[in-house]
């Protein structure tokens, strides 16, 4: 049994109780993904599985056999940052930084969901084109807590990264 993490195959061995989060951190040494509450409430452990954001603390590594996982290490590097990472730096989208890998993975997933036309709880129209207003971003990022309270800067960072990506696509 194996799963692919940031393009590299990893064998799943050991105790079936191992969460995907513990597998990433302990078995693979990918400590960018953070353990906050370990109960799906804080979002610090958010990673992408097959392109969708999930809480890695609430799934077992063994259940993800055959899937593709992207962690913060796979999103960018200090020398080649993702636009979201660059925007978080520019806008001070953090203070202590502990929630940041989860925030960025979550934002990455959110942009894909919005591009696919997924509505949120605050969307007026379930069928309309998704415009990621600050209100929409706040609702869609509500699964990622920041105890330093950098929320307004996080919204600014995501808003800027989004416009950069849109500009790049045109």
């Amino acid at each position: 049994m194996q799963l692919t993490i940031n393009g590299t195959a990893h064998e799943i061995t050991g105790d079936p109780r191992t969460s995907l989060l513990d597998f990433l951190r302990h078995d693979c040494g990918l400590t960018g993904t953070k353990k906050g509450c370990d109960h799906g409430q804080c979002g610090a452990c958010t990673v992408l599985v097959n392109g969708q954001r999930v809480n890695s603390c609430l799934t077992l590594a063994i259940m993800q056999d055959g899937h593709e996982v992207t962690t913060i290490e796979g999103i960018g590097t200090p020398d080649a940052m993702d636009p979201l990472q660059a925007a978080f730096v520019k806008h001070d989208g953090y203070q202590c930084g502990y929630c940041t890998p989860g925030q960025i993975c979550s934002a990455k997933g959110m942009l894909a969901e919005a591009a696919n036309g997924w509505a949120s709880f605050v969307s007026e129209d379930l069928d309309g084109k998704v415009e990621l207003s600050a209100e929409e971003i706040r609702e869609r990022m509500s699964g990622n807590l920041c105890r330093c309270g950098a929320y307004s800067n996080i919204v600014d960072a995501i808003t800027e990264a989004m416009s950069t990506q849109t500009a790049g696509a045109e």
């Binding site: 799906g40 979002g43 958010t46 969708q52 954001r53 999930v54 809480n55 609430l58 799934t59 979550s106 997933g109 959110m110 969901e113 509505a119 949120s120 709880f121 969307s123 379930l126 069928d127 869609r140 509500s142 699964g143």
Partner: peptide, 22 residues
Amino acid sequence: RRNYPVLARAILAGATFQLRNM
């Protein structure tokens, strides 16, 4: 979304995107 909006709305009112993806 089109034919059962009460269902889509109820689902979107629960949990977070991360949890609903699982």
